[in-house]
């Protein structure tokens, strides 16, 4: 065992290849197997919606806070959704303290792109009074433990937290013209689409799903596919890395569709059990 540990440290690539030759991975999974996904919703009581997602060791917590804002001038009937991904030093030694690093910024932009592309929540639904008042949803995703596949975990946490959001009823007092919040009457958000992400790494022309941090470092490229419940593509994100044929991409998509079904089933079950309580 000690010899294997040494081999892993000295020749990580060769160590990993030996496993792949046998069609398995160092953590005992098959190449197309996802890690166990656990979701907990409503974990933060002070937020309007929250969820904690664990994908193997990778842990992401998402909190959604709703605040009032004036709608943008150019589209007076829209609200805002502001996603932000935080990768603190706490989650891995690869990140530095201080302002958000490159990876955190890229992840935030990816989340913003997916929200825009999939129309998961129509921004029109967030408008309270045309041109005067709208909701702004601050969606903060914080990684607590980084073990690869950050985007999948973020996406899942975001969707689960969004399903958990309860917005209070707002009425405008006609005398004062001010908004009055009725905290007793709460309604959930209308969720139009359910985007779910599936990430892959490319390793010597092999496709491996749900990579760990170690696997991500050894890989020559990554692909993230986001699909909605109709099997439509909301994002095909491949930031460089080794090349991929159209056929391989098709393979990724069909696996992403299968993954979508799994995650949807998990979330539906969770929401149902929450309601039953």
């Amino acid at each position: 065992m000690a010899a294997a540990g040494g081999f892993r440290t000295v020749e990580p690539l060769e160590y990993y290849r030996r496993f792949l030759k046998e069609n398995c991975r160092p953590d005992g999974r098959e190449l197309g197997e996802f890690r166990t996904t656990t979701v907990n919703v409503g974990s933060i009581t002070t937020a309007d919606g929250s969820a904690l997602v664990k994908l193997g060791n990778t842990t992401v917590i998402c909190g959604i806070k709703a605040e009032f804002a004036v709608p943008p001038v150019d589209s007076s009937n829209k609200g805002y959704i502001v996603p932000n991904v935080d990768l603190p030093l706490l989650c891995s030694s690869r990140f530095r303290p201080g302002p958000p690093g490159e990876e955190a910024q890229a992840a935030s932009q990816f989340m913003a792109d997916v929200i825009e592309n999939s129309q998961v929540v129509m921004k029109e639904d967030l408008c309270i009074v045309d041109g005067k008042l709208a909701w702004v949803l601050y969606c903060d995703m914080i990684c607590l433990d980084y073990d690869g596949n950050l985007l999948d975990a973020c996406m899942c946490a975001f969707l689960a937290a969004l399903k958990n959001v309860q917005l209070p009823a707002v009425s405008i007092n006609e005398e004062t013209g001010l908004a009055e919040v009725n905290l007793k009457e709460k309604t959930p958000l209308t969720i139009r689409k359910e985007p779910v992400a599936a990430s892959f790494i490319l390793f010597d022309s092999l496709l491996i799903v749900d990579p760990t941090a170690e696997e991500e470092d050894l890989a020559t490229g990554t692909v993230t596919i986001v699909t909605d419940e109709e099997g439509k593509l909301c994002a095909v994100h491949k930031p460089g890395g080794s090349t991929l044929t159209g056929a391989k991409l098709q393979d990724c998509i069909s696996r992403a569709v299968t993954r979508h079904k799994e995650v949807k089933k998990l979330l539906d079950k969770l929401i149902k059990s929450k309601k039953a309580k």
Partner: peptide, 9 residues
């Protein structure tokens, strides 16, 4: 394909 980026569905 080396890189891919999509906007819209």
């Amino acid at each position: 394909i080396l890189m891919s980026n999509t906007k819209g569905s």
